[in-house]
Simulated assay, not measured.
Amino acid sequence: MTPETAQQLLDANFAPWVRALEIRIDDIGPTGATLSIPISDDIARVGGIVSGQALATLADTAMVFAAAGHFQAFKPVATTNLDTVFLRPGSGERIACRAEIVRAGRAVVFAQAEMIALPADKPVATATATYMIP
């Protein structure tokens, strides 16, 4: 799966409010996926930092695409657990999220992600998730 193919899948299958984050798929492969979003006024909260909701959505979406990269095909998955830890305020130009699969079985996938503020290259948040494969 290429980033371009994955981007088309995102655009065709995800809710409008997720697409409104302007998520870009920067890399995808068997070891994971890297997605990023621009930092804009639309996702800022008081103080001009990225809202936690936007970061959690980015992480969840990145881990779904890490699963797609792992399986080399887009499979609908259902988030059953999402845990996000916020480390510092997100600011700068973009937030990049690198997600990878920890373990994948026939029915359950475990994933983790790290979000980095760019261009400072500072960690902003981490996330873990569990997905059921219907």
Rank of each mutant, 00 (worst) to 15 (best):
L21F: 03
F74H: 10
E93W: 00
I116L: 08
V18N: 03
M115N: 02
V77R: 07
M63D: 10
N81Y: 07
G48N: 12
A68R: 02
A96V: 04
R45S: 08
G48P: 04
M1L: 14
L9T: 14
T5H: 13
D41G: 12
F71T: 05
A33S: 13
T79K: 06
P3C: 08
I133F: 02
P30F: 02
A125Y: 07
Q112G: 12
E22A: 12
P3G: 06
G69N: 09
Y131K: 03
R45W: 00
E22G: 06
K75T: 14
L82G: 05
D26W: 00
T2M: 05
Q53D: 13
Q8A: 15
E114I: 13
I28R: 01
P30V: 11
V102W: 05
K122V: 14
G92L: 06
A56N: 10
F65N: 11
D60K: 02
A59C: 15
A44I: 00
D121G: 08
H70L: 02
G105C: 09
V85I: 12
R103C: 04
V64N: 07
A125H: 07
I28N: 02
A73Q: 15
R94F: 13
G29F: 04
E100R: 15
A54N: 11
A129N: 06
T34C: 14
D83I: 13
H70F: 13
E4P: 00
G92N: 09
V109A: 10
S40F: 01
L87K: 12
L35R: 08
L9G: 01
R106K: 15
R19T: 04
G32R: 08
A107Y: 06
T80S: 14
V108Y: 06
T31K: 13
V109S: 02
Q72H: 10
I37R: 04
Q7M: 11
T126N: 11
R98P: 01
W17N: 09
R19N: 05
V77F: 01
Q53E: 15
F14K: 00
P134K: 07
G48V: 07
P16R: 01
F65S: 09
G69V: 06
Q7Y: 02
A62P: 10
E4S: 13
I101M: 13
A15E: 03
T130A: 15
Y131P: 04
S36G: 12
A96S: 15
P38Y: 07
W17I: 06
G92K: 10
I37T: 04
E22F: 00
R45V: 12
Y131S: 03
L58D: 03
I95R: 08
A127E: 07
T130Y: 02
A67W: 12
L55S: 08
A68W: 07
R103G: 03
I25G: 01
I101D: 09
I28D: 05
L118Y: 05
D121Q: 14
F65D: 09
V64D: 03
A12V: 00
A67Q: 11
I95D: 07
A56G: 15
F71L: 13
Y131F: 15
G105N: 12
F110L: 15
G29A: 10
I133S: 04
A44S: 14
T61M: 03
N81F: 02
Q8I: 10
G29P: 08
A127N: 05
T31Q: 14
T84N: 11
G52L: 09
